[in-house]
Amino acid sequence: MKIKELTTREEWKAAFPVMKQLRKHLDEENDLQLVEAAAKTSDYKMAAVIDGGNIVAVTGYMPMITLYNGRFIWVYDLVTDEVHRSKGYGARLLAYVEKQAGENGYGIVSLSSGLQRKDAHRFYEEKMDYDKVSYVFLKRL
């Protein structure tokens, strides 16, 4: 098992089947275009857990600055392949992001999680020691 930063279109494409399990609304080409644009303009990074030569978990994150958090890392995506869940891959990947944050001077890692994702909430709060501090609101225009 290793964690690898994914930096090329081919690597992002290889991660898509796992990412699709979280981002069901995306098709492969749309996903690749969004990842490429975010990587170029916003320092978005993607990393994966690779076990037995297969991508089994993926995260996407990037640095941000806001008045409420200051400088921090925002985790946009964190998903483990459904056939590989509960094996510690998500915890290892989130710990990797936390380590990257610390090594780069960011004192906070933050994320949002859909209201329906109760198992994910339990994971963040009970296993990873994250605090629930707000709701995220959205209005489609």
Rank of each mutant, 00 (worst) to 15 (best):
V18F: 04
V18W: 02
V18D: 03
V18K: 01
M19Q: 03
K20Y: 11
Q21T: 04
Q21S: 02
Q21K: 05
Q21P: 04
L22Q: 09
L22H: 06
R23H: 06
R23F: 08
K24Y: 06
K24E: 14
H25F: 11
H25N: 14
L26M: 15
L26A: 05
L26Q: 14
E28L: 11
N30D: 11
D31K: 04
D31W: 12
L32Q: 00
L32W: 01
L32N: 00
Q33D: 12
Q33M: 12
Q33Y: 10
Q33I: 10
Q33T: 07
L34Q: 12
L34A: 07
L34H: 06
V35D: 01
V35S: 05
E36L: 08
A37H: 14
A38E: 13
A38D: 13
A38Y: 12
A38H: 15
K40A: 15
T41Y: 10
S42E: 14
S42V: 05
S42P: 00
Y44Q: 09
Y44S: 04
Y44W: 10
K45D: 00
K45C: 09
K45A: 07
A47P: 07
A47C: 14
A47W: 09
A47D: 10
A48N: 01
V49R: 05
V49K: 04
I50Y: 03
I50L: 12
I50T: 02
G53I: 11
N54D: 11
V56E: 05
A57N: 15
A57E: 08
V58I: 14
V58Q: 02
V58H: 00
V58R: 03
T59H: 05
T59F: 01
G60M: 07
G60C: 09
G60A: 13
M62P: 01
M62R: 15
M62E: 08
P63K: 04
P63G: 07
M64V: 09
T66Q: 02
L67C: 14
Y68V: 07
Y68E: 10
G70I: 06
R71S: 09
F72C: 12
Y76W: 14
D77F: 05
L78P: 00
T80N: 03
E82R: 13
H84P: 00
R85V: 06
R85F: 03
R85D: 02
K87H: 10
G88C: 03
A91L: 10
A91I: 11
R92N: 12
R92E: 14
L93T: 00
L93E: 00
L94Y: 04
L94D: 01
A95R: 13
A95I: 02
Y96Q: 05
V97T: 02
E98L: 05
K99S: 13
Q100K: 13
A101D: 04
E103C: 01
E103M: 12
E103I: 04
N104K: 13
N104W: 08
G105F: 07
G105L: 07
G105M: 07
Y106V: 00
Y106Q: 04
Y106K: 04
G107F: 10
V109H: 01
V109W: 00
S112H: 09
S113V: 15
G114K: 13
G114Y: 13
G114A: 15
L115D: 11
Q116V: 08
R117S: 12
R117L: 12
R117T: 11
R117F: 09
K118Y: 07
D119L: 07
A120R: 09
H121S: 05
R122K: 12
